[in-house]
Design a protein around this nucleic acid. Sequence first.
DNA 1: CTTGACCCTGTAGTTGCTACAGGGAGCATA
DNA 2: TATGCTCCCTGTAGCAACTACAGGGTCAAG
Lengths: 132, 132
Amino acid sequence: MRSIGALGKATNTKVETIRYYERIGLLAPPQRTDGNYRTYDDEALARLSFIRRSRDLGFSLDQVRALLSLTDQGTQDCKTVDRIARDHMAEIERKIADLIALRHELSTMIESCGGGNISECRIIEALSPFDN
Amino acid sequence: MRSIGALGKATNTKVETIRYYERIGLLAPPQRTDGNYRTYDDEALARLSFIRRSRDLGFSLDQVRALLSLTDQGTQDCKTVDRIARDHMAEIERKIADLIALRHELSTMIESCGGGNISECRIIEALSPFDN
DNA sequence: CTTGACCCTGTAGTTGCTACAGGGAGCATA
DNA sequence: TATGCTCCCTGTAGCAACTACAGGGTCAAG
């Protein structure tokens, strides 16, 4: 059994975030000490680690919730998990493509900037609606 | 002079968003008609177009605010603009790198998923804190 | 017995909008 | 003139996923 601070350290999670996860129902309300402190067992540690790892991989809290409920059921097949992961992957592919397009536009803009004063700044010009 | 709805159409911006920009001080409060409707001139159109284009390029509202104040001053040199753009670019590079790393992790995970039941799901396993 | 680190609840802030609710304005049509 | 209809107004609340207080209580060490 460990305190919320210890759990936070073990999972690299802020105390407020753990309480937040409890509030939104991702983590079950833990037992309390006589002094009303939360205490967490190994299962809670495992669950929070799962959540954090999923979040690190960019899954939304809703997706994490779905993954958790699938593991909680235990009997359900792997297909739903696979679909969630693939959907997420597709979204990441999209974001990468968007950012690469953005980078291209930005770098074109930046390269055209000579460093003079604002009246002839190519960046401002590039952002402006009319050609001067 | 045009209504807020017309300005919105011209800049592909929702009416609520325009009012929001006004509220946070990105757009000056425009003139009003007798019936208390906002009316916008060409300068407002140019300014909002600038904002939208900057936003499309991924600049934050704070960055847009900085860019706008530089153009408003007119005399300041281009270096600050350049720095803002380069900082933004660096951030995008970072995001791309992060997402590519993520994609790699995810694809490894997904490929290992056989499609059996949850107890042997490699995705769940990959997300779990302990080996089994 | 006091100091300091930790914990508690509850609420508000962050970013960049978006979505109402509950009304008023302005124009066309019957 | 009445009735729709579309647009506009203000003000407030909601979204994601936390984060940051304020204003207190608990607990172990010295």
